[in-house]
Computed example of a mutant assay.
Amino acid sequence: MNPLGWLPYRRIRVRGPSMAPTLKDGDVVLARNRRNPRSGDVAVVTWVARPGQLSIKRVAGGDAGGWHVEGDNANASTDSRELGPALVHGVVVARLWPHPRLLSSR
């Protein structure tokens, strides 16, 4: 089962500084469930080593082993550089709060 559930969209509160300055701790985002990511997208991911923990990271690329994702704030991010390939469960399409805006690939 997808950790984002069965609905097409899910609201998620960002925790931690790993995606600053794009997203900050406490921001609320809207993720599209089961959307195929492209390089540059902000995605909701898990890792085999941390299956119950959802993380929000930027997609750097993908291959047969999974997706390489990194936080925008490299000094405050635990990501594919340490944990290996990630499983992508959805793509963040917008920040809802505090300053609503669509998110697009870099």
Rank of each mutant, 00 (worst) to 15 (best):
N73E: 13
L103R: 06
V28L: 13
G5H: 09
V44F: 10
V93Q: 11
A94C: 07
V92K: 04
P37R: 10
R58Q: 15
Y9H: 08
R10H: 04
V28R: 03
P8E: 03
V42M: 05
H99I: 12
R101Q: 15
T78G: 13
A43S: 05
A76Y: 10
E70S: 03
D63L: 01
S80M: 06
L103V: 09
V14P: 07
S18T: 07
V91Q: 09
G40D: 05
R38A: 14
A31N: 02
V48M: 05
R81A: 05
L23Q: 13
H68V: 05
L103G: 07
L30A: 07
P17F: 08
V69H: 02
P98N: 12
R10K: 15
L54K: 04
M19W: 12
G90S: 12
V69G: 02
P8C: 06
V69W: 02
G62Q: 06
H89F: 14
S55G: 15
S80E: 12
S104W: 15
L87M: 03
K24C: 12
W67G: 04
S80R: 04
T78D: 06
V93S: 00
W47T: 02
L102F: 06
A49K: 01
V91T: 13
V59M: 10
V29C: 11
V45C: 06
D25S: 14
D27Y: 13
I12N: 04
L103A: 14
V29P: 10
G84R: 10
W47K: 03
D63G: 02
M19T: 12
A43D: 00
S55Q: 08
R35H: 07
L23W: 11
M19G: 15
K24H: 15
S77M: 07
E70A: 05
R15Y: 01
E82S: 15
G26M: 11
N75T: 15
G16K: 01
G90W: 11
N36W: 12
T78F: 09
S77E: 07
G52A: 03
M1H: 06
N36F: 03
D25K: 13
Q53T: 08
G52T: 04
P100D: 01
V92N: 09
G61S: 05
R38C: 10
V93M: 13
L83H: 02
V48A: 15
E82M: 11
R38V: 10
V59T: 11
V44S: 08
N36I: 09
D72K: 10
S104M: 14
A64Q: 00
A49R: 06
H99W: 15
A64Y: 00
L30E: 05
